[in-house]
């Protein structure tokens, strides 16, 4: 295939990625604005808020470290808290890993760095139906780049307009709703639903645990329950097939 055709196809996938991620962008934008506002309102200087937004690209970690910064906590504790808040992305990257092993290492580094909640779910939904389609890296980058731009523009707006956006508007709730919209359709299978219930319960029970470990334990508990139920249902399905 001539090179220009490849480029055209990659552009097409990139554009499709950017388009597919669009429905989730109101949530990402609201969350970005809120993160920007929260950083400035907690007393972080504007240039540091900008630096953190543009490099960290991790709303929940940025929000988690703010109270620690306000308490003048040690630098290592801040880094560890960011790391643990980001732990769900280890799980995401484990789920994505098999789809990207063919690509060059440097590309995989950036594919990983640009992973977001919406991007990961949308990508896994597409490979679940289409398998390892060609130029999936371009598709992934299309989603990620759109998400990155929307998130950072929104963060900068939040940082600049912090004084004019009252916290009682609850703008951050739009981000929660966008994530909720990802969870609900995934609950159609029974094992996933069981996993969601268990993960949520444990995360709620462990909410006061240090370093947000309740969330981590909740995710693991949810995965274990979902996998056990999945295995049980499969066995039962095989058994009914054999007896009928």
């Amino acid at each position: 295939m001539p090179l220009s055709d490849v480029t055209a196809l990659r552009r097409q996938e990139f554009a499709r990625g950017a388009k597919d991620i669009l429905p989730a962008m109101p949530g990402a934008a609201a969350w970005g604005v809120v993160t920007g506002v929260a950083m400035v309102k907690s007393g972080l200087a504007v240039h540091w808020a900008l630096a953190m937004s543009l490099t960290a690209y991790a709303g929940s970690a940025q929000l988690a470290v703010l109270p620690l910064l306000a308490d003048a906590s040690p630098v290592w504790l801040i880094a560890i808290t960011a790391l643990i808040t980001n732990l769900r992305f280890v799980i995401y990257s484990a789920a994505l890993r098999g789809w990207f092993t063919d690509y060059r290492r440097q590309r995989r580094l950036w594919l990983g760095y640009l992973t977001g909640d919406f991007v990961m779910v949308t990508f896994l939904n597409r490979v679940a139906t289409e398998g390892a389609f060609v130029h999936r890296d371009a598709y992934f980058f299309g989603m990620s780049v759109a998400n990155w731009v929307v998130w950072n523009v929104a963060s900068i707006i939040g940082i600049a307009a912090a004084a004019y956006i009252p916290t009682h508007w609850g703008l951050e709730f739009a981000g929660v709703l966008a994530l909720l919209a990802l969870v609900v359709p995934m609950c159609r299978q029974r094992p996933a639903l069981a996993g969601v219930v268990v993960a949520s319960l444990v995360a709620v029970l462990g909410h006061g645990w240090p370093l947000r470990l309740g969330m981590v334990v909740g995710v693991i508990a949810g995965i274990v329950v979902a996998t056990l139920l999945d295995g049980h249902l499969r066995k039962r399905a095989v058994a009914t097939e054999l007896t009928s």
């Binding site: 929940s60 769900r88 799980i91 995401y92 484990a94 789920a95 909640d117 990961m120 779910v121 896994l124 929660v176 994530l179 909720l180 990802l182 969870v183 995934m186 609950c187 094992p191 996933a192 996993g195 969601v196 268990v198 993960a199 949520s200 444990v202 995360a203 709620v204 969330m215 909740g218 995710v219 949810g222 995965i223 979902a226 996998t227 999945d230």
Partner: peptide
């Protein structure tokens, strides 16, 4: 089942 569990533990 990891992504959906992670999202639930974040959202709920």
């Amino acid at each position: 089942y990891a992504p959906v569990c992670a999202l639930a533990a974040l959202v709920v």
